[in-house]
């Protein structure tokens, strides 16, 4: 790892101020993505600003209409939250499927979304549930937040403070885990909003990162059942092909995972 300067921020404003002082600052939350990348010398921030202990960034609030997860809340805490499990069980399940226990103890929702790994789990939930990403400057709709591989609408120095998920009528998540990395070889989140709107998002599939799947949304709109997807064909255009699976394989996985997610949603 290259040399760096470590700062522990006491508040969101303090973090933003510290960030501005460094020549090439980076925020640090759980460190489960940034530190491996720094160890590989693929990132060399002049300064790392630790957000993980800022009280305003930790916690979960559940109301009748929304589950709000503050940005530095760990995967472990979301997975274990009885309130989340009651309001949006699929979200708690998803958090419990991320990595392994040690990763879940440290990794945070804000870090996962800011990183926008094309195979990460949370982006699928955020996009399918139509969540809102709150930052220290504004609120960003899920549809505007994700902007392709490892890129988001966040500006330099902008801090995610919380993510607000509308409580859905039905929601489910299913993931084919890569057995070594535990990331999604393909994962699909299906959601039916209280308004009736159906949104489906797939991760680990597209070359551009998380994506909506209109063919599956169409089929589920008329008939919310796994069987409704039997005849659906997901296009392989723009999907990833690598040693783990071809684009065609992933296209089929999107459908199969969507069927399992619908079964999970009930």
């Amino acid at each position: 790892m290259y040399q760096t300067n470590y700062h522990r921020a006491s508040s969101v404003d303090d973090a933003a101020a510290q960030f501005a002082k460094g020549t090439e600052s980076k925020y640090l939350a759980g460190g489960q993505t940034l530190l491996p990348v720094m160890k590989q010398r693929l990132a060399a921030p002049s300064d790392v600003i630790d957000l993980a202990r800022i009280p305003a960034l930790i916690g979960i609030e559940v109301s009748g209409d929304a589950v709000t997860v503050k940005a530095a809340t760990t995967h472990y805490d979301v997975a274990g939250s009885a309130d989340v499990a009651r309001a949006i069980p699929a979200l708690a399940n998803l958090a419990g499927m991320i990595g392994d226990p040690a990763v879940r103890y440290c990794g945070t929702i804000g870090g996962s979304l800011a990183n926008n790994d094309p195979a990460a789990d949370y982006p699928a939930a955020v996009l399918a549930l139509g969540a809102t990403v709150k930052t220290n400057k504004r609120t960003i709709a899920a549809d505007d937040f994700f902007q392709g591989l490892f890129s988001t609408a966040l500006e330099d120095g902008e801090i995610i403070t919380a993510v607000s998920f509308p409580v859905a009528a039905k929601a489910g998540y299913a993931k084919m885990r890569h057995p070594a990395s535990r990331f999604a070889l393909t994962g699909v989140f299906v959601a039916q909003a209280k308004s009736g709107e159906v949104r489906v998002a797939a991760t680990g599939a597209s070359q551009d990162g998380v994506m909506r799947v209109p063919a599956i949304e169409q089929a589920l709109k008329g008939n919310w059942s796994a069987a409704a997807l039997d005849g659906v064909k997901v296009s392989a255009d723009g999907l990833m092909s690598d040693i783990h699976g071809t684009a065609d394989y992933r296209a089929n996985l999107v459908k199969v995972m969507a069927q399992r997610a619908v079964a999970d949603a009930g």
Partner: peptide, 14 residues
């Protein structure tokens, strides 16, 4: 909490 000490800066554990 059981964590990977190779993926935490010493400063984070201060």
């Amino acid at each position: 909490r059981a964590v990977k000490s190779c993926t935490m800066l010493a400063g984070q554990a201060d």
